[in-house]
């Protein structure tokens, strides 16, 4: 049993229910020491108030405002992403054919890409670009751009990805 009064640390450990040495001694001391019992009562009142749930700092329905801000931000991001994707497609659609035209080796380059008649595409590409070569320059540019736009649109529609994965894929363009 303690002969001196209990320390503040002992009171706090005792009320926190944390393992503390000599807990039975503390309890014995409390039985006989009125001063320490009063101190313990004061601590108990403090603990009681500290454990009471305060009023909510949040307004009712505040989550609706958050969700609507998140939706708005997501829409803005999607708009910018779409804009960038379209810009990228237009640039690609106009510069690639120009490059092929200037270097004058459309079929050669494409054959190089789809080596050894890959999935039968060699002849397909030869036919498509053979057809394009027959046109004048401006028509050729427009048709090439249209082909690329259609391909991109199809990819975006048929990919079995959910929103953010598809968006991640299109980030590269």
């Amino acid at each position: 049993m303690y002969l001196d009064h209990l320390t503040d640390e002992q009171f706090q450990l005792y009320l926190d229910g944390l393992p503390t040495e000599g807990i039975s001694d503390i309890e014995e001391h409390l039985k006989t020491c009125e001063e320490c019992r009063s101190q313990l009562s004061a601590y108990k009142l403090v603990y009681k108030e500290l454990n009471i749930e305060p009023e909510s700092a949040l307004l009712p329905g505040f989550e609706n405002a958050i969700i609507s801000r998140i939706r708005k931000k997501a829409e803005q991001k999607q708009f910018i992403r779409n804009l960038l994707t379209q810009a990228a497609m237009i640039i690609l659609g106009s510069t690639l054919p120009l490059y092929f035209l200037l270097t004058g080796k459309i079929s050669d380059d494409l054959n190089h890409i789809f080596v050894n008649n890959w999935f039968g595409t060699k002849h397909l590409w030869e036919n498509v670009f053979g057809f394009i070569r027959g046109m004048n320059v401006s028509t050729e540019l427009v048709v090439s751009a249209l082909i690329i736009l259609v391909v991109f649109s199809l990819i975006e529609r048929i990919l079995p990805f959910s929103g953010h994965r598809k968006a991640a894929l299109f980030k590269v363009f």
Partner: peptide, 11 residues
């Protein structure tokens, strides 16, 4: 420790 002791002392 100090916050709870302060509150108890004030009380």
């Amino acid at each position: 420790y100090r916050s709870r002791k302060l509150l108890k002392d004030r009380l």
